[in-house]
Simulated assay, not measured.
Amino acid sequence: MKKPRLNWNVEPWSDNEHLECVMVVPETRDTTTFIFRAPSGAWFDYQPGQFVTLDLPVPGGNVQRTYTISSSPSRPLSISVTAKAQADSIGTRWMMDHLKPGMRLKAYGPGGIFSFHRHRAPKYLFISAGSGITPMMSMTTWAWDQAQNADITFVHAARRPSDIIFRERLEQFAARVPGVQLRFTIEEPEPYITWTGYQGRLNQLMLGLMAPDYLEREVFCCGPEPFMQAVRDMLIALGYDMDRYHQESFGAPVATEAEAPVIEDIAPDEDARAQITFAASGVTAACAETDTVLAVAKRSGLNIPSGCTFGLCGTCKIRKTAGDVHMVHNGGISDDDIAEGWILACCSNPMGPVTVEV
């Protein structure tokens, strides 16, 4: 294979030139990094956290797939994308099965607005899950290469320890600078692998332990939509200034500010009125949306057994038979229970008229 010329006199790479794959690096059992260079020797100019769109020659016709750039523009002679194969994947599956060094692809970009270059701050909190780690890796590498000793708390959620993408590289960064603090949480351990970090879904309690000063940090979040929704719910409930929250879509990165979707999260309003009917007791009480079901019950002279009062122990689990609540819990209730109508009274806010079996 002919080596590309490293010519600093040429212009930065533009998408009128194909990318040439020069290396394929396995990251985890289902995740691979593909490294590209420009055949002309052009260098790459982009913001850490941006994405590139690849034109992939899959059977049946080319498809375009967008991938966050996992490399950093501080290392401009190549560009990398890190892809995780999903069950229904077409483009990524083709890349893993067929893309080899020496092959060339048409590409478009770079583009996107998800970058800490657009939101300068003294302290950052990166929160990611799965392959949502890729823009965070790009931004962290940039901070490392700039030798700025940036203050970054990096929180990442994965299914198992072996599924943590870039784990060794991030640990190398963190071991050499005091400003990078890593916090990993997994859903389940693996046999014969010692795990001493956090375990379970990311929740408010974990976040407070991982980043006690989260209110002071600029937050960047990337992962599956349910994960990002849970993060937003946590931050809103904790009183975080959501003007300082930034997220990248796991499925379709946003190219411009005008294309950014309007996030309309549910948040209890202290001026909005609600009502709770305790069916078994024959009591109906007016309240505000910011009141919890547990607080309204106590105020009405009713007893709902409770323990921790922040959604962890599950003692106050009761069944809701009508209406909607906004519940931000810390692991004290399962998804199956929620689907069957159960709620935790201590962390459920009534959103209008609600009926519970108490």
Rank of each mutant, 00 (worst) to 15 (best):
V63I: 07
P212C: 04
F227I: 03
L56A: 05
P191R: 13
Y108E: 14
F310A: 02
E225H: 10
I79Y: 02
R169G: 04
N349V: 14
A38H: 08
N330A: 08
I79K: 01
M228W: 13
K320M: 15
A339S: 14
A279V: 12
C308I: 10
V354D: 10
R5T: 11
D30Y: 11
Q229I: 12
K320F: 04
V354N: 04
T53S: 11
G41Y: 01
T315A: 08
R159H: 09
Y245Q: 07
A252F: 15
E218N: 13
L6P: 13
A129P: 00
P189D: 11
L6D: 15
A143G: 03
I164C: 06
G60C: 14
V58R: 14
A260T: 14
N149M: 05
F116D: 04
R5V: 07
R93H: 10
I113W: 04
R232F: 04
A38P: 03
I35F: 08
L235T: 09
C308M: 03
L294P: 00
L125C: 05
S138N: 08
R37K: 14
Q86M: 08
E357G: 06
P353G: 02
N62M: 08
R65W: 10
A255T: 13
I79F: 08
A230R: 10
D241T: 04
S334I: 12
V177Q: 05
E225M: 13
S131T: 11
Y240A: 09
N149Q: 13
L344K: 06
N330V: 01
Q229E: 10
V155F: 01
S306V: 00
T53H: 12
A258R: 10
I164S: 05
E188M: 13
H117M: 10
H329P: 06
V283E: 07
T141E: 09
G331F: 00
R29A: 11
V63C: 07
T290K: 05
A121I: 11
D88G: 03
E225R: 13
L56F: 05
D45K: 15
M137N: 15
C313N: 04
A295Y: 06
A42W: 02
E248Q: 12
Q148C: 13
I318R: 02
N9G: 14
H98C: 12
C308V: 02
I127D: 00
T153I: 02
V325M: 15
N349S: 09
L312C: 14
R120M: 15
G60N: 11
P12D: 07
